[in-house]
Amino acid sequence: MLVNGVRVSADPALNNEEIVTLVHDEIRLWHQRNKTLGAIELTLDGESIIIRGHEKSPIRRVRRITGYLSTVDQFNDAKRAECQDREVHAG
């Protein structure tokens, strides 16, 4: 299940309204900490709901240019343009 871009794994005993409310609350809490919630697990333990959140990690692209590893954001304008112009060939 996906709620506002967050992957949700929930106990079957929880209804959709409960799940959506819990996810929205958790998104708000993560936002206050300047973090992005990527996935959440909701499990029942008796009368309690255990919430396990997992941070969404940004994807980093690292390129190897003449033997050096570098992220694309560190490239100069010409090298960025070269990367954008590259074609992927199936093979």
Results as ranks from 00 to 15, higher is better:
residue 30 W to M: 14
residue 45 D to F: 04
residue 83 C to V: 06
residue 46 G to H: 02
residue 54 H to R: 15
residue 77 D to R: 10
residue 24 H to R: 15
residue 17 E to K: 08
residue 1 M to V: 04
residue 2 L to I: 02
residue 8 V to R: 00
residue 9 S to M: 08
residue 89 H to K: 13
residue 83 C to L: 11
residue 72 V to H: 02
residue 71 T to I: 07
residue 19 I to L: 01
residue 24 H to Q: 14
residue 69 L to A: 09
residue 58 P to T: 09
residue 60 R to K: 15
residue 62 V to E: 05
residue 53 G to Q: 03
residue 27 I to E: 04
residue 77 D to Q: 10
residue 86 R to F: 06
residue 13 A to Q: 13
residue 41 E to K: 09
residue 3 V to Y: 00
residue 18 E to G: 11
residue 53 G to C: 08
residue 91 G to E: 07
residue 85 D to W: 04
residue 23 V to K: 00
residue 52 R to E: 12
residue 39 A to T: 03
residue 57 S to T: 11
residue 10 A to W: 00
residue 45 D to G: 13
residue 23 V to S: 06
residue 88 V to D: 06
residue 14 L to A: 06
residue 82 E to Q: 12
residue 63 R to H: 09
residue 24 H to A: 14
residue 76 N to V: 06
residue 17 E to C: 06
residue 10 A to F: 00
residue 4 N to F: 00
residue 83 C to Y: 02
residue 83 C to P: 05
residue 61 R to T: 15
residue 47 E to T: 10
residue 71 T to Q: 08
residue 29 L to S: 15
residue 73 D to N: 11
residue 17 E to T: 08
residue 39 A to H: 00
residue 69 L to T: 02
residue 30 W to A: 15
residue 3 V to L: 04
residue 15 N to M: 07
residue 67 G to E: 05
residue 22 L to E: 02
residue 27 I to R: 07
residue 64 R to I: 12
residue 42 L to S: 04
residue 89 H to W: 03
residue 42 L to R: 01
residue 20 V to G: 05
residue 44 L to V: 10
residue 71 T to W: 01
residue 33 R to F: 03
residue 19 I to H: 00
residue 58 P to L: 14
residue 90 A to Q: 08
residue 59 I to R: 13
